[in-house]
Design a protein around this nucleic acid. Sequence first.
DNA 1: CGTGTTTGACCCGCGC
DNA 2: GCGCGGGTCAAACACG
Length: 310
Amino acid sequence: MEKKETTMETDNSIGATTFSDQIPTTFSLSSIFDMSCEGEKGSLGIMDLLGIQDFTPSIFDLLQQPSTLLPPSPPPPLPPTSSLPESSEVLNLPATPNSSSISSSSTEAANDEQTKAVEEEEQEKTKKQLKPKKKNQKRQREPRFAFMTKSEVDHLEDGYRWRKYGQKAVKNSPFPRSYYRCTSATCGVKKRVERSSDDPSIVVTTYEGQHTHPSPVMPRGSSTGISSDSGSYGAAFAMPMQLTQSHFQQQQQQQQPHFHNLPPLNFNSNISSSPTFVQERRFCTSAASFLRDHGLLQDVVPSDMMIKKE
DNA sequence: CGTGTTTGACCCGCGC
DNA sequence: GCGCGGGTCAAACACG
């Protein structure tokens, strides 16, 4: 296709370079939970799943009642998780995000070799039948996590480098959905970014997959950065933290030597005093309920931030 | 030149 | 089986 003058000035094309100028003055992360229940056909209902109508009226009111941030419906029933790769979608159980025993990580590692073999077989088969660029293999679903972020920018800086590989119009929404992929060659993490049609100030970011590498953006993040054992959970959970830190970096125009990828739910006291972080803590509260079964969590999350969701 | 974005085409899964 | 819509690909392009 002949590319004409690219006059696309979509507000979602904000790059990392311009992001710093558009840091939201108010950043309110509202909720996070498993999006694995999101069906292929139902992805359009993200807002519904997220209960954004309930969210919209007053995030702060809701923040006063963390329990209201929980998904309106209980987590989807877990199909028997055999070693089949298709089960990856249901692996986003409340696995320990900050421990190496994360189930999705180990399971995925175990599945990886099996799935690779299967994939190669299928690819070889289908290569002859289909265009090389297309794969006939069953699409595998990584664990997904969605954030609702009150922000003016769509693409939130989360410490990783992303390459946009697609943009689609969303049905019943004036805002497009953008597809990003981690630029690391070995990392297949993707994320989707879309704006709520109900409340344009709300950005829904959905992470899919696990980072297999530390954050490349953070200068000293390798030691405590998000590694394979935290994966997407880490990315997902660290994102608001990083944004918060980035936010304050922008505000204070100074470098913080500890600025790096934080492990999930590793609350850094240096930023915990900020008003924004209070919101982040609320966010993490919601996340805590999400991860309620994991021992290490109690070590880093104050008990009053934990929610029993039964 | 390397990296990231744009965008139309294509594939695939699902509902009817 | 067909159509719709979500998701992905990849060439062309933009930019530093």
